[in-house]
Amino acid sequence: MNSKVADRIATGVFIAIAFIIVAILAALFSFILFRGVPQISWEFLTTPSSSVRAGGGIRDQLFNSIYILFITMLITVPLGVCGGIYMAEYAKPGKVTNFIRSCIEMLASLPSIVVGMFGLLVFVNTTGWGYTIIGGALALTIFNIPVMVRVSEDAIRSVPAEMKEASLALGITHWHTIKTVLIPSAFPGILTGAILASGRVFGEAAALLFTAGLSTPRLDYLDLNPFSETSPLNIFRPAETLAVHIWAVNTNGIMPDIREIANGSSAVLVLAVLIFNLLARWLGSAVHKKMTAGK
């Protein structure tokens, strides 16, 4: 009888915990959306921000967030996946590998403000670039790479050994086996890692304050020459992202509609992350289906 009671209590506790988690999430989400969605309008999304007058939008910040995300992933994913391949397939167990693994874990636990300060020293001052998108993207890469390496390594290791042996026994070289068997099989796991990493990029403010800056130059969205000063595609221009904008508006904004801008921006940020996740998953499953002939 006693164990039955214990079982029932345990079940109850776990259900309660699950309920609390869902409730917190739902409350947070509905709070942000309830407060923010009414502020979102086409105008809010398509006008540049104003630092003194009311009625400023978030056009540039939204674009900057997406653009920095794109640039960061462009650097992070290849490096992270290659690092994962190395750790899973080439690194021999031993002191050196353990050392590399500790380094990766250390890197993963660095506070983002520290990464930001490092970025300021290296990507802003030493290189002489000033506040730039590429500086921000490199700083974000630093703290996303550990996640990417770790997730890729796990994904590759979890491919059944028989699959790899089958390929090697056919006389396929190690590299070809990695390319044609291991990576396609590990693809869903790697994608999840990439999505997690992107979420962090979208939401990151501290590491970008000192690297990508707090301002955006006047942009001309028709100017697609990435070397032009006013082009949104120029990676050597300062760029305030949405997350940074929310922080900046809240701490030192002087426009009269601070609340509205912050609420609207938060809602847009949350929705952008959501839409991005859904799109990435949909695209990922389409790619995976194509690679593996569906299931």
Binding site: E162, M163, A166, S167, V181, P184, S185, M291, T292, A293
Partner: peptide, 8 residues
């Protein structure tokens, strides 16, 4: 065990 690749 049969170990076909996850392909067509």
């Amino acid at each position: 065990k049969g170990n076909p690749f996850p392909q067509s």
